[in-house]
Design a binder for these strands. Structure first.
Lengths: 155, 155
DNA sequence: CTGCTTGCAAAGCGTTTGCATTGAT
DNA sequence: ATCAATGCAAACGCTTTGCAAGCAG
Protein backbone atom coordinates (compact mmCIF):
# COMPACT_ATOMS: atom_id res chain seq x y z
CA UNK A 1 0.00 0.00 0.00
CA UNK A 2 1.14 3.42 -0.80
CA UNK A 3 0.46 4.91 2.59
CA UNK A 4 2.61 2.20 4.15
CA UNK A 5 5.52 2.97 1.92
CA UNK A 6 5.10 6.55 2.89
CA UNK A 7 5.18 5.79 6.58
CA UNK A 8 8.16 3.48 6.20
CA UNK A 9 10.03 6.16 4.40
CA UNK A 10 9.48 8.50 7.31
CA UNK A 11 10.60 5.89 9.83
CA UNK A 12 13.77 5.02 7.98
CA UNK A 13 15.04 8.54 7.82
CA UNK A 14 13.60 9.27 11.24
CA UNK A 15 11.38 12.08 10.09
CA UNK A 16 8.16 11.08 11.71
CA UNK A 17 7.66 14.05 13.94
CA UNK A 18 8.12 17.77 13.91
CA UNK A 19 11.25 17.85 16.02
CA UNK A 20 13.05 15.45 13.69
CA UNK A 21 12.04 17.48 10.68
CA UNK A 22 13.17 20.67 12.33
CA UNK A 23 16.52 19.24 13.39
CA UNK A 24 17.02 17.92 9.90
CA UNK A 25 16.09 21.27 8.39
CA UNK A 26 18.60 23.02 10.60
CA UNK A 27 21.36 20.58 9.65
CA UNK A 28 20.60 20.89 5.96
CA UNK A 29 20.98 24.63 6.20
CA UNK A 30 23.99 24.70 8.49
CA UNK A 31 21.99 26.22 11.27
CA UNK A 32 22.38 25.34 14.89
CA UNK A 33 20.19 23.26 17.09
CA UNK A 34 19.87 25.33 20.25
CA UNK A 35 17.90 24.80 23.45
CA UNK A 36 15.86 27.92 22.65
CA UNK A 37 14.79 26.62 19.28
CA UNK A 38 13.85 23.24 20.68
CA UNK A 39 11.92 24.75 23.54
CA UNK A 40 10.02 27.10 21.25
CA UNK A 41 8.96 24.23 19.02
CA UNK A 42 8.01 22.06 22.00
CA UNK A 43 5.84 24.75 23.56
CA UNK A 44 4.34 25.71 20.22
CA UNK A 45 3.24 22.12 19.62
CA UNK A 46 1.56 22.04 23.01
CA UNK A 47 -0.65 24.94 21.99
CA UNK A 48 -3.66 24.67 19.76
CA UNK A 49 -5.15 26.73 17.01
CA UNK A 50 -3.87 30.14 16.06
CA UNK A 51 -0.98 31.22 18.23
CA UNK A 52 0.42 34.72 18.48
CA UNK A 53 3.99 35.53 19.41
CA UNK A 54 2.57 37.11 22.53
CA UNK A 55 0.78 33.87 23.52
CA UNK A 56 3.94 31.92 22.92
CA UNK A 57 6.02 34.33 24.94
CA UNK A 58 3.67 34.05 27.93
CA UNK A 59 3.67 30.27 27.77
CA UNK A 60 7.45 30.05 27.47
CA UNK A 61 8.36 32.52 30.19
CA UNK A 62 7.82 30.03 33.06
CA UNK A 63 10.21 27.54 31.43
CA UNK A 64 12.82 30.07 30.34
CA UNK A 65 12.24 33.69 31.27
CA UNK A 66 15.25 34.88 29.33
CA UNK A 67 13.97 34.07 25.84
CA UNK A 68 13.45 37.29 23.95
CA UNK A 69 10.72 38.24 21.52
CA UNK A 70 13.23 38.51 18.69
CA UNK A 71 14.16 34.87 19.08
CA UNK A 72 10.51 33.92 18.90
CA UNK A 73 10.03 35.77 15.63
CA UNK A 74 13.26 34.38 14.23
CA UNK A 75 12.38 30.83 15.19
CA UNK A 76 8.82 31.00 13.89
CA UNK A 77 10.24 32.08 10.57
CA UNK A 78 12.47 29.02 10.55
CA UNK A 79 9.52 26.76 11.35
CA UNK A 80 7.64 28.25 8.43
CA UNK A 81 10.58 27.66 6.13
CA UNK A 82 10.81 24.12 7.42
CA UNK A 83 7.20 23.59 6.35
CA UNK A 84 5.95 22.98 9.85
CA UNK A 85 4.02 26.15 10.45
CA UNK A 86 1.72 28.42 8.53
CA UNK A 87 1.36 32.15 9.13
CA UNK A 88 -1.97 33.98 9.07
CA UNK A 89 -2.86 37.63 8.96
CA UNK A 90 -6.57 37.50 9.74
CA UNK A 91 -6.61 40.56 11.92
CA UNK A 92 -4.01 42.98 13.12
CA UNK A 93 -1.82 40.41 14.84
CA UNK A 94 -0.01 37.68 13.00
CA UNK A 95 -0.86 34.15 14.10
CA UNK A 96 0.97 30.90 13.56
CA UNK A 97 -0.65 27.55 13.02
CA UNK A 98 0.69 24.01 13.09
CA UNK A 99 0.84 22.64 9.60
CA UNK A 100 2.60 19.31 9.54
CA UNK A 101 0.57 16.12 9.79
CA UNK A 102 -2.55 18.18 10.21
CA UNK A 103 -5.21 18.07 7.57
CA UNK A 104 -5.44 21.23 5.58
CA UNK A 105 -8.48 23.23 6.50
CA UNK A 106 -10.10 26.56 5.92
CA UNK A 107 -11.69 28.95 8.35
CA UNK A 108 -15.04 30.29 9.33
CA UNK A 109 -14.48 33.52 11.21
CA UNK A 110 -17.07 35.33 13.29
CA UNK A 111 -16.90 39.06 12.67
CA UNK A 112 -18.21 39.82 16.14
CA UNK A 113 -16.52 37.47 18.61
CA UNK A 114 -13.59 36.44 16.38
CA UNK A 115 -14.36 32.76 17.00
CA UNK A 116 -12.87 30.63 14.26
CA UNK A 117 -14.16 27.25 13.15
CA UNK A 118 -12.09 25.05 10.93
CA UNK A 119 -13.51 23.08 8.06
CA UNK A 120 -12.58 21.41 4.85
CA UNK A 121 -14.48 20.75 1.69
CA UNK A 122 -12.99 18.49 -0.98
CA UNK A 123 -15.10 19.88 -3.79
CA UNK A 124 -13.97 23.41 -3.12
CA UNK A 125 -10.38 22.21 -3.34
CA UNK A 126 -11.15 20.52 -6.62
CA UNK A 127 -12.53 23.69 -8.17
CA UNK A 128 -9.62 25.70 -6.87
CA UNK A 129 -7.29 23.43 -8.79
CA UNK A 130 -9.48 23.89 -11.84
CA UNK A 131 -9.18 27.67 -11.66
CA UNK A 132 -5.42 27.43 -11.31
CA UNK A 133 -5.16 25.15 -14.31
CA UNK A 134 -7.12 27.65 -16.38
CA UNK A 135 -4.67 30.39 -15.47
CA UNK A 136 -1.59 28.20 -15.72
CA UNK A 137 -0.84 28.74 -12.09
CA UNK A 138 1.13 26.25 -10.02
CA UNK A 139 -1.00 26.07 -6.89
CA UNK A 140 1.13 25.86 -3.78
CA UNK A 141 -1.34 26.67 -1.06
CA UNK A 142 -4.51 28.54 -0.46
CA UNK A 143 -6.33 30.44 2.14
CA UNK A 144 -10.07 30.64 2.42
CA UNK A 145 -11.90 32.57 5.05
CA UNK A 146 -15.65 32.73 5.32
CA UNK A 147 -16.60 35.76 7.34
CA UNK A 148 -19.91 36.22 9.06
CA UNK A 149 -21.81 35.84 12.30
CA UNK A 150 -21.58 32.64 14.31
CA UNK A 151 -24.65 30.98 15.74
CA UNK A 152 -24.11 32.71 19.09
CA UNK A 153 -23.55 36.21 17.78
CA UNK A 154 -26.27 36.29 15.16
CA UNK A 155 -28.92 36.29 17.88
CA UNK B 1 -38.94 43.31 -14.39
CA UNK B 2 -37.14 43.24 -11.19
CA UNK B 3 -33.84 44.52 -12.50
CA UNK B 4 -35.62 47.51 -13.95
CA UNK B 5 -37.24 48.36 -10.67
CA UNK B 6 -33.84 48.16 -9.13
CA UNK B 7 -32.32 50.53 -11.61
CA UNK B 8 -35.23 52.93 -11.33
CA UNK B 9 -34.89 52.95 -7.62
CA UNK B 10 -31.27 54.01 -7.98
CA UNK B 11 -32.13 56.74 -10.42
CA UNK B 12 -34.91 58.18 -8.33
CA UNK B 13 -32.81 58.61 -5.27
CA UNK B 14 -29.78 59.49 -7.36
CA UNK B 15 -27.60 56.66 -6.14
CA UNK B 16 -26.25 55.34 -9.37
CA UNK B 17 -22.59 55.99 -8.82
CA UNK B 18 -20.02 55.92 -6.09
CA UNK B 19 -19.91 59.64 -5.46
CA UNK B 20 -23.66 59.81 -4.91
CA UNK B 21 -23.51 56.90 -2.54
CA UNK B 22 -20.66 58.46 -0.63
CA UNK B 23 -22.36 61.85 -0.38
CA UNK B 24 -25.50 60.14 0.80
CA UNK B 25 -23.56 58.09 3.33
CA UNK B 26 -21.98 61.23 4.71
CA UNK B 27 -25.32 63.00 5.00
CA UNK B 28 -26.92 60.03 6.72
CA UNK B 29 -24.18 60.06 9.32
CA UNK B 30 -23.97 63.83 9.78
CA UNK B 31 -20.51 63.89 8.32
CA UNK B 32 -19.23 66.61 6.05
CA UNK B 33 -18.66 66.57 2.38
CA UNK B 34 -15.23 68.09 1.96
CA UNK B 35 -13.05 68.69 -1.09
CA UNK B 36 -10.46 66.29 0.34
CA UNK B 37 -12.95 63.47 0.64
CA UNK B 38 -14.26 64.01 -2.85
CA UNK B 39 -10.79 64.20 -4.32
CA UNK B 40 -9.68 61.03 -2.57
CA UNK B 41 -12.67 59.13 -3.91
CA UNK B 42 -12.18 60.55 -7.40
CA UNK B 43 -8.51 59.58 -7.55
CA UNK B 44 -9.17 56.20 -5.99
CA UNK B 45 -11.74 55.39 -8.66
CA UNK B 46 -9.23 56.27 -11.36
CA UNK B 47 -6.87 53.63 -10.04
CA UNK B 48 -7.22 49.93 -10.65
CA UNK B 49 -6.70 46.80 -8.65
CA UNK B 50 -5.26 46.82 -5.18
CA UNK B 51 -4.31 50.28 -4.03
CA UNK B 52 -2.14 51.12 -1.06
CA UNK B 53 -2.33 54.34 0.90
CA UNK B 54 1.13 55.08 -0.40
CA UNK B 55 0.00 54.70 -4.05
CA UNK B 56 -2.93 56.94 -3.37
CA UNK B 57 -0.79 59.55 -1.70
CA UNK B 58 1.59 59.71 -4.66
CA UNK B 59 -1.24 60.02 -7.14
CA UNK B 60 -2.99 62.72 -5.14
CA UNK B 61 0.02 64.89 -4.37
CA UNK B 62 0.04 66.60 -7.81
CA UNK B 63 -3.57 67.65 -7.38
CA UNK B 64 -3.36 68.63 -3.74
CA UNK B 65 0.04 68.38 -2.05
CA UNK B 66 -1.35 69.32 1.34
CA UNK B 67 -3.44 66.20 1.90
CA UNK B 68 -2.00 64.23 4.79
CA UNK B 69 -1.67 60.50 5.21
CA UNK B 70 -4.02 60.57 8.17
CA UNK B 71 -6.81 61.95 6.02
CA UNK B 72 -6.26 59.16 3.52
CA UNK B 73 -6.58 56.51 6.19
CA UNK B 74 -9.60 58.21 7.69
CA UNK B 75 -11.32 58.56 4.34
CA UNK B 76 -10.61 55.00 3.22
CA UNK B 77 -12.26 53.85 6.42
CA UNK B 78 -15.33 55.86 5.54
CA UNK B 79 -15.41 54.37 2.05
CA UNK B 80 -15.30 50.91 3.56
CA UNK B 81 -18.14 51.76 5.91
CA UNK B 82 -20.09 53.15 2.98
CA UNK B 83 -19.73 49.78 1.27
CA UNK B 84 -17.71 51.12 -1.62
CA UNK B 85 -14.33 49.67 -0.79
CA UNK B 86 -12.88 46.46 0.53
CA UNK B 87 -9.72 46.16 2.53
CA UNK B 88 -7.14 43.38 2.06
CA UNK B 89 -4.21 42.26 4.13
CA UNK B 90 -2.42 39.98 1.71
CA UNK B 91 1.06 41.07 2.61
CA UNK B 92 2.53 43.58 4.99
CA UNK B 93 0.80 46.58 3.50
CA UNK B 94 -2.94 47.02 3.55
CA UNK B 95 -4.57 47.42 0.15
CA UNK B 96 -7.94 48.82 -0.81
CA UNK B 97 -10.09 47.60 -3.66
CA UNK B 98 -13.15 49.06 -5.35
CA UNK B 99 -16.21 47.09 -4.37
CA UNK B 100 -19.33 48.74 -5.64
CA UNK B 101 -20.81 47.65 -8.96
CA UNK B 102 -17.91 45.28 -9.41
CA UNK B 103 -18.52 41.58 -9.38
CA UNK B 104 -17.20 39.80 -6.37
CA UNK B 105 -14.07 37.87 -7.13
CA UNK B 106 -11.29 35.95 -5.50
CA UNK B 107 -7.57 36.11 -6.02
CA UNK B 108 -4.73 34.12 -7.44
CA UNK B 109 -1.52 35.46 -5.97
CA UNK B 110 1.95 34.74 -7.24
CA UNK B 111 4.32 34.07 -4.37
CA UNK B 112 7.28 35.32 -6.36
CA UNK B 113 6.26 38.45 -8.27
CA UNK B 114 3.15 39.25 -6.22
CA UNK B 115 1.06 39.46 -9.37
CA UNK B 116 -2.61 38.96 -8.58
CA UNK B 117 -5.21 37.60 -10.95
CA UNK B 118 -8.88 37.92 -10.17
CA UNK B 119 -11.36 35.15 -10.76
CA UNK B 120 -14.74 33.89 -9.69
CA UNK B 121 -16.24 30.46 -9.53
CA UNK B 122 -19.95 30.05 -8.86
CA UNK B 123 -19.63 26.47 -7.65
CA UNK B 124 -17.09 27.41 -5.04
CA UNK B 125 -19.48 30.06 -3.77
CA UNK B 126 -22.22 27.49 -3.61
CA UNK B 127 -20.19 25.10 -1.47
CA UNK B 128 -19.11 27.94 0.78
CA UNK B 129 -22.73 28.62 1.54
CA UNK B 130 -23.23 24.92 2.21
CA UNK B 131 -20.43 24.88 4.77
CA UNK B 132 -21.88 27.92 6.51
CA UNK B 133 -25.30 26.36 6.70
CA UNK B 134 -23.82 23.27 8.32
CA UNK B 135 -22.21 25.41 11.00
CA UNK B 136 -25.18 27.75 11.38
CA UNK B 137 -23.08 30.68 10.29
CA UNK B 138 -24.56 33.77 8.64
CA UNK B 139 -22.18 34.27 5.76
CA UNK B 140 -21.46 37.95 5.21
CA UNK B 141 -18.43 37.82 2.98
CA UNK B 142 -15.49 35.67 2.16
CA UNK B 143 -11.93 35.85 1.08
CA UNK B 144 -10.19 33.22 -0.98
CA UNK B 145 -6.61 33.40 -2.04
CA UNK B 146 -4.89 30.78 -4.11
CA UNK B 147 -1.17 31.10 -3.66
CA UNK B 148 1.41 29.73 -6.04
CA UNK B 149 3.62 30.49 -9.00
CA UNK B 150 2.27 32.32 -12.02
CA UNK B 151 3.01 31.15 -15.54
CA UNK B 152 5.92 33.58 -15.81
CA UNK B 153 7.60 32.77 -12.53
CA UNK B 154 7.24 29.02 -12.62
CA UNK B 155 9.78 28.84 -15.42
C1' DC C 1 38.07 28.07 17.48
C1' DT C 2 34.65 29.79 14.29
C1' DG C 3 30.79 32.04 13.24
C1' DC C 4 25.89 31.26 14.08
C1' DT C 5 22.59 32.52 17.84
C1' DT C 6 21.09 35.04 21.55
C1' DG C 7 18.98 38.94 24.30
C1' DC C 8 18.73 43.54 24.53
C1' DA C 9 17.61 47.85 22.91
C1' DA C 10 16.85 50.68 19.24
C1' DA C 11 15.08 51.29 14.90
C1' DG C 12 11.51 50.57 11.34
C1' DC C 13 7.25 50.50 9.49
C1' DG C 14 2.47 51.13 8.57
C1' DT C 15 -1.26 52.95 10.97
C1' DT C 16 -3.70 55.68 14.51
C1' DT C 17 -4.43 59.53 17.58
C1' DG C 18 -4.21 64.24 19.98
C1' DC C 19 -4.58 68.76 19.12
C1' DA C 20 -4.92 73.40 17.47
C1' DT C 21 -6.61 75.31 13.32
C1' DT C 22 -9.59 75.40 9.41
C1' DG C 23 -13.74 75.18 7.07
C1' DA C 24 -18.57 73.06 5.78
C1' DT C 25 -23.15 73.66 7.06
C1' DA D 1 -21.61 80.04 15.03
C1' DT D 2 -21.18 75.39 15.46
C1' DC D 3 -18.68 71.31 15.52
C1' DA D 4 -16.69 68.00 12.30
C1' DA D 5 -12.43 67.65 9.39
C1' DT D 6 -7.85 68.65 8.48
C1' DG D 7 -2.69 68.50 8.70
C1' DC D 8 0.92 67.93 11.47
C1' DA D 9 3.60 65.48 14.55
C1' DA D 10 3.84 62.35 18.01
C1' DA D 11 2.39 58.01 19.60
C1' DC D 12 1.41 53.34 18.82
C1' DG D 13 2.05 48.29 18.29
C1' DC D 14 4.02 44.74 15.97
C1' DT D 15 8.06 43.26 13.81
C1' DT D 16 12.89 43.57 12.43
C1' DT D 17 17.68 44.71 12.96
C1' DG D 18 22.43 45.95 14.91
C1' DC D 19 25.41 44.61 18.11
C1' DA D 20 28.32 42.63 21.69
C1' DA D 21 28.37 38.53 24.33
C1' DG D 22 27.45 33.68 24.41
C1' DC D 23 27.51 29.13 22.86
C1' DA D 24 27.00 24.91 19.37
C1' DG D 25 29.65 22.31 16.37
Amino acid sequence: MQSNDYENCFQIINMNNELDIFVDYLKQHNLRCTPQRNLILKIFLEMEGHVTVEDLHKKIRPEDPTIGIATLYRTMKLLIDAGLVEMHNFNDKTTYERLYMVKHHDHLICQICNKTVEFEHPLIEKYQQEVCDQHEFDLKSHRMELIGFCNECKK
